[in-house]
């Protein structure tokens, strides 16, 4: 088992749980968010900076819905022979339309999400990846989403 990259204290956990959504859009947003957490603006900024540098959070900022901008998302899966896995991952990841990509323990061992500016872009990109890698791309677009949330247990 991998070691956690970052030892979180209670304040870090509270920050991660409280700031999953609802960050203010206002002139001094960190000051407002910090006040709700009982922290100073400088302390919150310093902790978020440290969390990002340590990799405990991958990003802090707005999350956009590609569909609401006229674009589209699609989960895709491929079965890649182990010997070709790294080279194929590099080719897939080189596409800016690949928003994230996970290795999974399964015959279908590469799972990535395409985000494109148009629904037609999904099909074009899936076809381009099939042509470039030689492996079929399963298209698994979401039909319905039930809940998005996550809590760090203290």
């Amino acid at each position: 088992m991998k070691e956690p990259l970052h030892d979180l204290d209670d304040t870090d956990r509270r920050i991660i749980n409280a700031l999953q959504e609802g960050f203010p859009i206002a002139p001094r947003p960190y000051a407002a968010a910090a006040a709700r957490l009982g922290l100073t603006e400088a302390d919150l900024i310093a902790r978020l900076t440290a969390l990002r540098e340590s990799g405990a959070i991958t990003r802090f900022g707005p999350f956009f819905d590609a569909a609401a901008m006229g674009g589209a998302f699609c989960l895709c899966a491929m079965a890649v022979p182990p010997a070709e896995f790294e080279a194929t991952a590099a080719r897939v990841n080189a596409r800016p339309e690949v928003a994230h990509n996970y290795a999974r323990a399964h015959r279908l061992n590469m799972w990535f999400v395409l985000a494109t500016e148009t629904p037609a872009g999904i099909e074009a990109m899936a076809c381009a990846i099939e042509a470039e890698t030689g492996y079929p791309v399963l298209r698994l677009p979401k039909l319905e989403e039930f809940f998005i949330g996550f809590r760090v247990v203290a």
Binding site: K2, P4, L5, H6, L8, I15, I16, L19, Q20, E21, G22, F23, I25, L48, L51, S54, G55, A56, I57, T58, R59, F60, G61, P62, F63, F64, D65, A68, M69, F150, V152
Partner: peptide, 17 residues
């Protein structure tokens, strides 16, 4: 309009243990 779904952190589950 829903173009911004949320503003906040993206936790890295691995780094969180």
């Amino acid at each position: 309009r829903g173009v911004i779904r949320r503003i906040g952190v993206a936790p890295n589950h691995y780094a969180l243990g």
